[in-house]
């Protein structure tokens, strides 16, 4: 078998795949954060909790109502999105006239409440979620076309491939909707100058509310994807969201495509570091963040305010 870094190329390929899959989550979550931030200048600390809520709702739909994965993929983003609409209407809307930090603090408080309630209801240990038969198992992929060695065969878990594909498709749809459609142009205009857009007869407060709901729905969608990969726990979102914050700082929140690309690339880099120097896996993204801040404080795709 061919080896790189003393590691069989098949295992290497799997690590890269896992890296891309982590990147898929970074991209989905940082995309949601960027959409929300672009519209309302609020950093949604609850993004991780809403992602966790998505995973739990998938679990609940299956075990209480018998609704499977595909239903969850459709219904959970809607339900989490509605939760987001309520949060915007009840809380966030009353904070826009204040310093933006209050939005961050409020959503942080919500994280504690939501996580506390979930621990209270389901306990802190993980719950299993079974993915659909279609996405079980692994594909055999020959690597002989790369290495020229017939014995190099790689087992690609189907579900991981699905996560990457689903994330790419959703990210591109969001990018298209915001950058290329009429609705998206209203949105971008309202970001630049809400008062003027209002004068053209567009209901900006409703638009802001729906934008928040949509960003939150993206987190819920990511949560359903994650439910098929790992045990569902109340704390699955909070550690991830801090990494996503670093991803957002690296990318800068100026561009939708920038957030998506940064997410995937950082997932890949993390995988490479895991192969070369496993001890640093947890902190590599933070280290990259420091380097980017020193060289380009506004982030790779950001504009200095």
């Amino acid at each position: 078998m061919t080896t790189i870094f003393d590691m069989p190329i098949a295992i290497l390929g799997l690590q890269i795949l896992i890296g891309l899959q982590n990147g898929a989550f970074y991209a989905l979550l940082s995309l949601g954060l960027a959409v929300i931030f672009g519209m309302m200048n609020v950093i949604n600390f609850a993004h991780g909790a809403q992602y966790m809520l998505g995973a739990f709702l998938a679990y609940i739909l299956l075990s209480w109502l018998g609704l499977g994965y595909w239903w969850a993929l459709l219904l959970v983003p809607l339900l989490v999105g509605i939760f987001g609409l309520a949060v915007e209407r009840l809380f966030l809307r009353h904070l826009y006239h204040l310093d933006h930090l209050y939005g961050l603090l409020l959503t942080f408080g919500l994280v504690l409440i939501v996580e506390g309630v979930m621990v209270d209801m389901f306990g802190a240990s993980g719950l299993p979620y079974s993915k659909p038969d279609l996405l079980q198992g692994a594909e055999r992929i020959p690597l002989s076309w790369v290495t020229g060695n017939e014995r190099d065969i790689m087992m690609m878990p189907v579900y991981r491939l699905w996560v990457i594909a689903a994330s790419i498709v959703v990210c591109l749809i969001v990018w298209f909707a915001i950058e290329k459609t009429r609705l998206g142009s209203y949105l971008r205009a309202a970001t630049e100058n809400p008062t003027l857009v209002r004068a053209f007869g567009i209901n900006v407060p409703i638009m802001v509310m729906l934008t928040y709901g949509f960003g939150v729905a993206l987190a819920g969608f990511a949560g359903v994807l994650a439910a098929g990969l790992q045990a569902v726990t109340p704390h699955m979102g909070s550690s991830l969201i801090i990494v996503v914050f670093a991803v957002v700082v690296i990318g800068g929140m100026g561009s939708i495509m920038g957030s998506i690309l940064t997410g995937f690339v950082l997932g890949l880099i993390e995988a490479v570091v895991k192969i070369a120097y496993p001890e640093a896996t947890n902190i590599v993204i933070f280290v990259i963040m420091i380097c980017v801040l020193l060289v380009r404080p506004a982030g790779l795709f950001g504009r200095e305010a």
Partner: peptide
């Protein structure tokens, strides 16, 4: 490092930096 950005970014950067200390303490 953190004062290179203001406001919300400052908060996110300090949070990310402190998470490094968390992992350092863990490992």
């Amino acid at each position: 490092i953190a004062i290179r950005r203001q406001g919300i970014y400052f908060a996110m950067i300090t949070l990310a930096l402190s998470q490094m200390i968390y992992f350092a303490a863990l490992q």
